[in-house]
């Protein structure tokens, strides 16, 4: 790969820059719009930079709801969803590196849970929660989203590429299965853990429907639920919504920046299967 010349890099860089502009523009527009007045938001052609710069939207945002409480709930959910991510990884290891009875069938059942629109199961899940007495509890909010087929499948695909010889060697040395998972599989999976970590954070940070459905009390609401309360029956204050979304997106960008460097730091020990 030494032959990548500076020239080639420039060409690729320019192509990426042009494409990138199209990709990032709506995000930039969203962020800048949170400093605009409502009337400036819908001008055609849209303005990129606010004509009348205002903090009004953010002032309104932070005074209009119980911010600290919602933030706390959101963070609890994020925390538990990271725990859920490890349950996903464990299950994926089980599916990728072991032979056991009913494995393929069981794995397909896991995948099947992705294949049906969420609304179909909303009421059944609620009724199950209700019979367990978990409505209006943090547990009821967290449990349904703790594990997911997408995560299990993603981890399984990557763990499959780890060479079985390494694991066998460790087993011969007397390492426990748990040790192998924790000290060999997980480190090799660093890049995909980073990817899954980003996705898990975003999902937890934005969690909306279950907190709303489960809670019979504002004190279990999340930030996303709080933001959605800003809309009226007929009129929706878009500038305020943009401010809310901007506020929500900043931590995501920070997490992305933090995690993304691990995407490039895998152990290069995998081999052909």
């Amino acid at each position: 790969m030494k032959e990548k010349t500076v020239g080639q890099k420039w060409i690729v860089g320019v192509i990426l820059a042009i494409l990138g502009l199209i990709f990032i523009l709506p995000l930039v527009w969203m962020i800048l719009s949170s400093f605009k007045t409502e009337s400036e938001l819908f001008t055609i052609p849209p303005t990129v930079f606010p004509k009348h710069f205002t903090w009004d939207n953010f002032n309104k945002l932070f005074t209009s709801f119980n911010f600290a409480q919602y933030l706390k709930n959101t963070l609890i959910i994020v925390l538990f969803s990271f725990f859920g991510m490890f349950l996903n990884a464990m299950a994926a290891y089980g599916f990728a590196k072991f032979k056991f009875k009913g494995k393929n069938f069981l794995f397909f059942i896991v995948l099947a849970t992705m294949m049906i629109p969420g609304q179909v199961t909303m009421i059944p899940v609620y009724l199950i929660m209700n019979s367990l007495g978990l409505t209006n509890t943090m547990a009821g909010i967290i449990l349904p989203g703790l594990v997911g087929a997408f995560g299990i499948f993603l981890f399984r695909q990557f763990i499959s590429t780890i060479s079985t010889e390494i694991l066998e060697a460790a087993r011969l040395d007397g390492a426990s299965e748990w040790f192998i998972f924790w000290h060999i599989v997980i480190p090799i999976c660093k890049p995909i853990l980073a990817v899954q970590g980003i996705l898990t954070f975003i999902a937890g940070w934005n969690s909306f429907l279950w907190p709303l459905i489960m809670a019979n009390d504002d004190k279990y609401y999340t930030l996303s639920v709080g933001l959605s309360l800003l809309k009226g029956q007929y009129a929706s204050n878009y500038a305020l919504q943009m401010a809310g979304s901007t506020f929500m997106v900043v931590p995501i960008i920070i997490i992305f920046m933090m995690f993304q460097k691990y995407i490039l730091q895998g152990f290069n020990v995998s081999g052909m299967k």
């Binding site: 609620y126 909306f208 709303l212 459905i213 019979n216 639920v225 959605s228 809309k231």
Partner: peptide, 25 residues
């Protein structure tokens, strides 16, 4: 009085679950 705020966009879902569980406010 305890007021619980529901967003218009998903209030209908919330009401459905209240009906299903014979609970609610």
């Amino acid at each position: 009085v305890k007021v619980q705020a529901l967003p218009w966009s998903n209030a209908h879902d919330k009401l459905l679950t209240a009906v299903a569980s014979k609970g609610g406010p």
